[in-house]
Amino acid sequence: MKHKRENAGDMIMRYSGYIAFAVIIVFFVIKAPIFLRYSNLVNILAQSAVLGICGFGLTGIFIGGGDDVIRGGTDLSITLNMAVAGAIIAVMAGGGKPLWLAFVTAVLVSITIEAVNAYTIVKLKMVPLLSTICMMYLLQGVERIITNNVVVPANHKALAFISNTAILGIPVIAWIFVVVAIVMYVLFNVCSYGNKVSASGGSELAAKASGINVSLMVASTYLIGGVMASVSAFLMVARLSSYTPGAGDLQLFDVMLVSYLGAVFSRRYRPNIPGTFIAALFIGVLTNGFTLINVPSYWVYAIKGALILVTVSITTIQKRRVE
């Protein structure tokens, strides 16, 4: 059987994400030579950690829930989950409680939040989009209650160490980002668990016929999302030495962007962990580069919106060709 030979247009579409990334980097190198300084590059890696780790959680949910526009996997409350976890860590650590206790408490709360999401979606059969929007608004109120709607300082030696220390010239936060990326890659791309989650998201009927507990697989992705939300919250508080109310609202757009954009860095044009890692760096490069050349923030938002439009268009066209 002869395989259809790819033409130049197909090649460009297939590697469009990498081409765009390379063009953006060249542009910033020309406009701001300091962009390529080692200190700036590792700073981009560290700045991308919070966004990328939370994006891993959402990507797992996308993989397990499938890409149906209405009933597919999604979680619009994940950054508000991160916000509540960040508020808990800041209040407890700033109040003199052990940092490990603050982090464990945040993790348990985040997992509980996602367990509620999973229950409403898997057991009550609510549409994920609607269910997680309801949770999002609920968590906005919880966040304000915890913080009294004021900035909460979190001065703690361990947080300062994580924020300011470098190992082999790379910030600790960046190392945590890389380690979490590797763990999530192994979980979703190497372990049998990842195959079961992908099968559940690809075809529920086929997965059930293969003996896969689809409900359990889908629910587990939300619980993992909760863990990722709490880890990203911990790093956010460490970087800022405080927590600012409303941080979750600001992060939602970017987390959704990196999770969708990751599909461009995949041969199958579907959300994936390596793609999300690259997409987080891509957005980190954009934010950092535009700051260096003093581009107004509203242009950055416009460009990110255009990226989502282009990403959805490319993945839709390419998936039709693949399928």
Rank of each mutant, 00 (worst) to 15 (best):
L235Q: 02
L139F: 02
W175T: 00
K208E: 15
R239A: 11
L240Q: 12
W175D: 03
S192V: 15
A219T: 03
L187V: 14
M236G: 01
V179Y: 02
V218H: 12
K196D: 13
V179M: 08
V218Y: 12
I133F: 12
A209N: 07
I176R: 01
K196T: 04
P171D: 08
L139G: 11
V186G: 09
I167L: 14
I173F: 00
A154Y: 02
L129A: 10
N213K: 13
S220A: 15
V186L: 14
L223C: 11
V237T: 08
K157D: 11
V150D: 09
F161D: 06
A206E: 05
S200H: 03
A209M: 15
L187C: 08
L205E: 10
I145F: 13
V142Y: 00
S198Y: 14
L138I: 11
A158K: 07
A206L: 11
S163C: 09
V197C: 07
E204R: 15
L216H: 13
A199S: 11
W175Y: 07
K196V: 02
K125W: 04
F234G: 00
M236L: 15
G194D: 06
N213D: 15
N164Q: 13
L138C: 09
S215I: 03
Y243V: 07
M126G: 01
A181M: 07
V227C: 09
T221K: 00
C191D: 13
S192R: 13
N164S: 15
S198E: 12
S163E: 07
V190L: 10
L205M: 12
F234R: 02
S131G: 15
A238N: 02
G201I: 04
L205D: 12
E143G: 06
N195P: 01
V186K: 10
I173L: 03
T165G: 01
P171G: 02
S232L: 08
L240R: 05
F234V: 02
P171A: 10
I176Q: 05
G211S: 10
L168M: 14
L129E: 08
L138E: 01
G202V: 07
T165W: 00
Y137L: 11
T132H: 11
E204D: 10
G169A: 08
G225E: 08
V127I: 12
S210K: 14
M136V: 03
Q140D: 03
M184L: 15
L139K: 02
